[in-house]
Structures are given as structure tokens and as C-alpha cells.
Design a protein around this nucleic acid. Structure first.
Length: 448
RNA sequence: GGCGGGUUUGCCAAGUGGGAAGGCGGAGGUCUGCAAAACCUCUAUGAGUCGGUUCGAUUCCGACACCCGCCUCCA
């Protein structure tokens, strides 16, 4: 199995440090608002990654942090008059619900930054002792980028090539170099009750340090996989490497995987453009979690994805065709048939989902034409542990619906087509479609 | 300015130095009392533009055009 490693910018064979165990850390949400569809693409990619690793027999330990203390959260707390805990707990639960809607597997460990303060302080202390960090006048602690000679190895930026932008100059904190970043931010009045005691006085952790502390706490000083959106490459992940490796002297992460962002209807998602969607927005428009799942995972994770309503419609049609196929498969009994040709080869190749889905649809067409191989349903159950679309139940037709189907069939036999068409309309009203197949009528529930 | 990605059929989207997957849509067909549903078949002599290398390029190299991302707390 091969992955494109951001660190080397090449596609490399994946070899875990300690097989069959795999340590996977994925950067989680900052819980001050609902996740939007762009956020969810990242979690979808990570879900497919994890599921495929498990499919391949690895025992994955998946850790995803919840960032529950941060500037934007504090602003929300201040503006809402609620407590930090109230705000972050609410959005954390909403986030987990979104993941469930999309059938994204929950991480095994979901550490919160606010529950990891001791580990964070310990890590910062180590960096201060090592002279990789220093305490500013106001009691904030900063990481000294110049102290880490490999700084820039992930993003491939050179320090002197970094263009200073407005944000650097506007920073309210004191530090020696504009590019140094805060490990610990000293408390001020605007922070309200959000504060913890530390060797440097009251304050709160910076953003990057929490991921270093929590990932190493749960996965060790070195682990296999670390993922996130491509925007996190710099500075977030670059800074994580600097902090972690300066503290431990060991290589932090072996494979870095990053997903590209998405556009909505060809444009960058923004509230002012009116193309900003949360999952609840899409559900309210009548789209289902699995349709959204299909759209989000069907484009390769390193390619920019254009999220459109045409795409959702296409996903709906494709899934209907898949469901139709699965419903006609005989129940599994006996041996499983070989996995769809090409599926694993495609997924092994840096999760080439497009090619994998192409293999799936070729299999469907071939099976429709010449009959599915025995054990196909059991095989699909295994494939679906990766795709996560779910397998439609052989829907039981309610008795009153079946009675109408039978009555219509009797009317047809008696050539009473007026009556049979009435019943057909009636069934349509109730959300059922009749398929008159050579084997007789079949009632099918229609979506929407 | 620095670093990086992209441009494939109506839309979405793969692979590949030697006649371009797959999905959606569209067209035709099978089935049907008629439909619908379902299924089958077909649907890019051409891959942003111009050069080069090669027996041969969509695939390699070089220009150019356009689009996009990152450049200090946005997945």
C-alpha cells in the first residue's frame, strides 16, 4: 500500500513502525460552530484511510483531538455569555453527530485540549529547559524557530522566504522573532474565566502545542500517520514537528497525509457568496448522509473537489443503481467470492477511489449481464467496510401495500386497466413504485 | 515575490510512451396493456495553446495562457 507523503513529496510504500499496529492522528475540529462541508471532507478522507488500513488487517489506533480552547472559542464564549464548557460541549456533540450521519467512524480516543493541560505544560517545560522556548515579558511562552534547524522540512519553506503578512504585525503578543509562535498565552481580561495555572502564570495553551502533546501522549513520541487539510501543513504541522522533535529528539511522524480543499459550485465557500453549507443545511434540503458521503469520498483526496448539487444528484442516481444491484443479490451462504477485480489494487495506490469505484461499477454491469458470482453479497459486505455506504435491507413491504399490489395485479389479469392504474397512482402517493418484471410485480420504496 | 497543484467527452472524474476507465446525463433497445422501474447497447480519431524528444505523446521536456492552494492560528 502506498501513500503520498507530504514530508518527501513522493508516493512511498507504507510500512508501519510496529505492524500490525498503526498509530493514526487526525487533526480534529475547533468546536465553536457547526462543521461545514469543507471540514467534513477532511474527516471523510481520514475515514476512508482508516477503514482501508483496517480492511488490510492493520490494527489502527486512531486519535483525534478536540480543540476546545482557542481565540475564536473565547470570542464566542464572551459574546454568548455562556461558559466555555457549554459552548464546546454543544458543538462537540453536534460534530460527533455529523460524523455519525456520514457514517464516519469515531476515533478511539478523542482527547480535549482542556483535559490535556498537564501534558501540555510538561511539554512546554521541556522546551523551555532545552532552550527551544523562551518566556516573553507578559508571561507568554514562545517557541524559537531559529533553535530548530529542520524548520520548514514539511512545508518546504525556507525561513527567509516567508513573506511577512499583516497578521504578523498585528499580533498582540511580544516575541523575539516575528515568526516565533506561542506555546502558552498569558491570561488577559478578555479571556474571562478561561485560564489555567502554569509555571509561567495564568494562561492557556497555544494552538499547535496541544496536538504535539496529545498525539505523543496517546501514540508515543514517534508514530505512523498524521493527517489534516492541506492548509494545516503550514504553520500548524510544521510547528508540531518543531515542538515535538525538539522535545524528544526523535522523529515525530513517519507519514504525513493531507487532503485538498473543496469548492462549492466552483467557488471558494464563503458566507457572503451564499455557498456555505453545513451538514444540517444539506439534510434540510433533502439530501441524505450517504449521498453526501458518496460525493465527498468519490474524488481523490489530494484533488480539489468541486461540491455541487449536480454532483449530489449524480451520487443519488449512482447509489440507487448500487442499491438495486445489492437488493437482487441472493443472500450469502457458503464461500465468499473473490473481491472485485481491481478494487484493492486501486486502493493500494494512494487510495485511488475513482479507480476503485470504476471497478465496482464494472462488476455491477458484468453481474447484471451474466449473473453475480456466488458469495457476492458477502464479498460486498467486506468491500463496504471500506466504502461505508451501507447495504439496503430487503425492505419488508407493509401488508396494506402488498394488498394493493395484489389487487392491482388481479385487476391487470382481468384487463381492468383503469382500476390497476388507479392503484398504481395510489401506491405512488404512498411512496411506492411498482416494477412489473417478467417474474411478476415488485414493490419498491422510493426516496423522498 | 517564494513554494505547490491543476487544465481530459454535455457535467463529474481515472489510468496510460503504442488504438482514453468509471459515474451522471443523453440516445437507442429489451420488457410492458400503456407506462414506470429495471437491465442492455451506444455516447471524446482526441486530451488548454505552441514547440521539442521519439518509429510513435494525452502521457516525457520546454515555453505560453488560464484557474486554484499555501506563505503564522482556515479542513
Amino acid at each position: 500500500m502506498k501513500f503520498f507523503n507530504t514530508l518527501t513529496r513522493t508516493t512511498e510504500e507504507f510500512v508501519p513502525a510496529n505492524p500490525p499496529h498503526v498509530g493514526l492522528y487526525t487533526c480534529g475540529p475547533t468546536v465553536y460552530n457547526y462543521a461545514h462541508i469543507g471540514n467534513l471532507r477532511a474527516f471523510m478522507f481520514e475515514d476512508v484511510l482508516r477503514r482501508y488500513l483496517e480492511y488490510r488487517g492493520y490494527q489502527v489506533r486512531h486519535v483525534m483531538n478536540i480543540t476546545d480552547v482557542e481565540d475564536k472559542i473565547i470570542r464566542t464564549v464572551r459574546e454568548s455569555g455562556k461558559s466555555l464548557k457549554e459552548v464546546t460541549e454543544f458543538y462537540t456533540q453536534e460534530f460527533l453527530r455529523d460524523l455519525a450521519t456520514l457514517n464516519i467512524k469515531s476515533a478511539h480516543v478523542l482527547p480535549r485540549a482542556t483535559e490535556s493541560i498537564p501534558a501540555i505544560i510538561e511539554l512546554i517545560s521541556k522546551l523551555v529547559e532545552n532552550n527551544h522556548a523562551y518566556v516573553g515579558e507578559d508571561g507568554s511562552v514562545y517557541y524559537s524557530i531559529r533553535s530548530f534547524k529542520d524548520y520548514g522540512k514539511l512545508s518546504h519553506f525556507k525561513l527567509d522566504e516567508l513573506q511577512a503578512t499583516g497578521r504578523v504585525q498585528h499580533d498582540e503578543y511580544t516575541r523575539e522573532s516575528a515568526s516565533d509562535f506561542a506555546l502558552w498565552k498569558s491570561w488577559d481580561e478578555a479571556d474571562g474565566d478561561v485560564k489555567w495555572a502554569s509555571p509561567w502564570g495564568l494562561g492557556r495553551p497555544g494552538w499547535h502545542i496541544e496536538c504535539s502533546a496529545m498525539s505523543m501522549q496517546h501514540l508515543g513520541a514517534s508514530f505512523d500517520l498524521h493527517c489534516g487539510g492541506e492548509d494545516l501543513i503550514f504553520p500548524h504541522h510544521e510547528d508540531e514537528i518543531a515542538q515535538s522533535e525538539a522535545a524528544t529528539g526523535k522523529p515525530f511522524v513517519r507519514y504525513w497525509l493531507h487532503n485538498a480543499h473543496l469548492l462549492v459550485e466552483g467557488k471558494k465557500m464563503s458566507k457572503s457568496a451564499g455557498n456555505f453549507f453545513t451538514l444540517r443545511d444539506l439534510l434540510a434540503k433533502g439530501w441524505t448522509g450517504r449521498e453526501i458521503r458518496y460525493v465527498l469520498l468519490s474524488t481523490h483526496y489530494r484533488k480539489q473537489l468541486d461540491f455541487t448539487f449536480d454532483g449530489l444528484q449524480a451520487a443519488r442516481s449512482a447509489l440507487q443503481r448500487l442499491d438495486e444491484f445489492l437488493l437482487k443479490l441472493p443472500d450469502a451462504a457458503g464461500p465468499i467470492c473473490p473481491v472485485i477485480a481491481g478494487f484493492e489494487a486501486a486502493m493500494d495506490d494512494d487510495l485511488n477511489i475513482s479507480a476503485a469505484l470504476a471497478a465496482v461499477f464494472e462488476f455491477i454491469r458484468e453481474s447484471n449481464k451474466n449473473g453475480a458470482p456466488p458469495g457476492a453479497l458477502a464479498m460486498w459486505q467486506r468491500v463496504d467496510t471500506v466504502l461505508g455506504f451501507g447495504i439496503p435491507g430487503k425492505a419488508s413491504v407493509p401488508a396494506e401495500i402488498q394488498a394493493l399490489v395484489d389487487e392491482r395485479q388481479a385487476a391487470r389479469k382481468a384487463k381492468n386497466f383503469k382500476r390497476s392504474d388507479e392503484i398504481r397512482d395510489q401506491l405512488a402517493q404512498a411512496g411506492w413504485v411498482i416494477e412489473d418484471t417478467p417474474q411478476g410485480p415488485r414493490a419498491k420504496r422510493v426516496a423522498g
